[in-house]
Simulated assay, not measured.
Amino acid sequence: MTLTQYLTETNQTATALAAKVGCEVSTITRLAKGERAPSIALAHSIERATSGLVTIGDLALAALSTSGEAA
Score class of each variant (00 low, 15 high):
M1F: 00
T2E: 05
T2P: 05
L3G: 03
L3H: 03
T4K: 04
T4A: 07
Q5T: 11
Y6H: 14
Y6P: 12
L7Q: 06
L7C: 06
E9G: 12
T10I: 12
T10A: 15
T10L: 12
N11Y: 10
Q12M: 15
Q12T: 15
Q12F: 10
T13F: 06
T15H: 14
A16L: 13
A16T: 14
A16G: 15
A16M: 12
A18G: 13
A19E: 15
A19M: 14
K20H: 14
K20T: 14
G22P: 10
G22E: 11
C23R: 10
V25A: 10
V25Y: 08
V25E: 13
V25I: 13
I28T: 11
I28C: 12
I28P: 07
T29G: 09
T29P: 09
T29N: 12
L31D: 02
L31P: 02
K33T: 13
K33S: 15
G34I: 07
G34Q: 07
G34H: 04
R36G: 05
A37H: 04
A37F: 01
P38V: 06
S39C: 08
I40V: 10
L42C: 11
H44T: 12
H44W: 02
S45G: 09
S45N: 14
S45W: 01
E47C: 08
E47H: 03
E47M: 10
A49F: 00
S51A: 10
G52R: 03
L53E: 07
V54I: 03
V54Y: 01
T55Y: 00
T55K: 03
T55H: 04
I56V: 12
G57N: 11
G57C: 05
G57E: 13
G57T: 09
D58H: 11
L59W: 00
L59C: 05
A60E: 12
L61P: 00
A62S: 14
A62V: 06
A63Q: 05
A63S: 13
L64Y: 01
S65K: 06
S65T: 07
T66H: 05
T66V: 02
T66G: 05
T66L: 01
S67F: 00
G68V: 07
G68Y: 03
E69M: 05
E69R: 04
A70K: 01
A70D: 03
A70Y: 01
A70N: 02
A70F: 00
A71S: 13
